[in-house]
């Protein structure tokens, strides 16, 4: 996911950069209110945890491994604002000090990997919390699905950015289908690891899980044991359902490879891209097989992401009034 330079055009890089910077400024203020003078040490060490958690390789199948992205996990453990801030710190330091992800790609990398996974993931988590029982099982399930879908949301966001800022004439629906398809699989791993990790914290220190600050220990303890297998089957079913729905929309045009040339010469389209202007206008000429359908998918995905991230932000800011003090520390200071 750490996209390098040159993947999206300069306009998209700048626009996503502005959105990311604005959101992080809000998140910085919000975590300051939430953690007060603990902001720097707690957010810093949590960022180290997320960075380390990304090194957690877990088995996928037959010896191949995947690893955690951690945005939704961070949001559920620390709250959406702190989660977004912490993952942003990870992504920025990875770009500047580890040369992982392009410098001009920072805008969309932060947006996709930190902002959308944290705020979007947290919104889905809260929504599911309302639908599921208020006990540990409900929370764990909500965590899993939210974490899995946060990865899918992130891939959808990338596809939409591609629609605006593509640097190559690959149709939106192809990118969307491929990105979302791959990330559905990645999402399953993310879901299971996040859910079990939150489950482990709930057993030992439920007071550290931001996402359950409304529940007390007793409610959480009502805990019909749920086997790993049951959870896995559930997760796969949800993913399959999602895959079917997505493929309905996003079936890549079968004759996409043999698509007849458009009447646009490549220099024209190429130059348009190079100048990075009027991208939205020329994307149609750079080859979308089915314009209406693509726009419909893009529009729907855009609305879903906006709703999720928007309500995540809303919850993050609303909690400010609801929750005067979340102090885990025993200190009276």
């Amino acid at each position: 996911m750490h996209a390098p330079d040159g993947f999206l055009n300069a306009g998209t890089a700048v626009a996503t950069g502005a959105v990311s910077a604005g959101t992080i400024a809000v998140a910085l203020r919000r975590t300051r209110e939430q953690l007060r003078d603990k902001q720097v040490p707690l957010a810093g060490i949590s960022a180290a945890f997320i960075f380390a958690a990304q090194m957690f390789n877990f088995p996928v199948a037959a010896g191949t491994t995947g690893h955690l992205l951690g945005g939704a996990l961070a949001a559920i453990l620390l709250g959406p604002a702190t989660g977004a801030l912490v993952v942003t710190v990870v992504v920025v330091v990875q770009a500047l000090a580890f040369a992982d992800g392009g410098l001009t790609a920072l805008g969309y990398n932060v947006l996709n990997m930190a902002v959308i996974t944290s705020f979007g993931g947290y919104a889905i988590f809260l929504l599911l919390r309302r639908l599921l029982p208020s006990n540990a099982t409900g929370v764990i399930l909500a965590t899993g699905v939210a974490a899995g879908l946060s990865v899918v949301l992130s891939s959808m966001a990338f596809s939409i950015e591609w629609l605006f800022g593509a640097t190559a004439p690959v149709p939106f629906d192809t990118v969307f289908g491929a990105m979302v398809g791959v990330h559905l699989l990645i999402g399953i791993g993310e879901a299971i690891i996040s859910a079990l990790a939150v489950g482990a914290v709930l057993v030992a220190r439920p007071d550290l899980v931001y996402g359950v600050k409304d529940l007390d220990r007793a409610t959480l303890a009502e805990r019909p044991a749920m086997g790993m297998r049951g959870f896995l089957i559930g997760g796969v079913l949800v993913a399959l359902l999602f895959a079917v729905v997505v493929s309905q929309f996003a079936a890549p045009d079968p004759d996409g490879l043999e698509r007849v040339a458009t009447d646009t010469g490549f220099i024209d389209s190429a130059q348009d891209h190079a100048f990075g202007s009027s991208v939205f206008a020329d994307y149609a000429t750079t080859g979308v097989a089915n314009e209406t359908l693509s726009l419909a998918i893009a529009g729907t995905a855009g609305v879903v992401i906006t709703l999720a991230v928007g309500s995540g932000l809303f919850f993050a800011l609303r909690d400010r009034r609801r929750e005067p003090d979340r102090d885990h520390h025993h200190a009276a200071v």
Partner: peptide, 24 residues
């Protein structure tokens, strides 16, 4: 080797979070 064998890894991720938070 398989995803459903990942429970110990996830559990240690949870333990690691608690340790990190307490360190904080």
């Amino acid at each position: 080797r398989w995803l459903w064998q990942a429970r110990p890894i996830a559990t240690s991720a949870g333990a690691l979070f608690i340790r990190s938070y307490e360190r904080g």
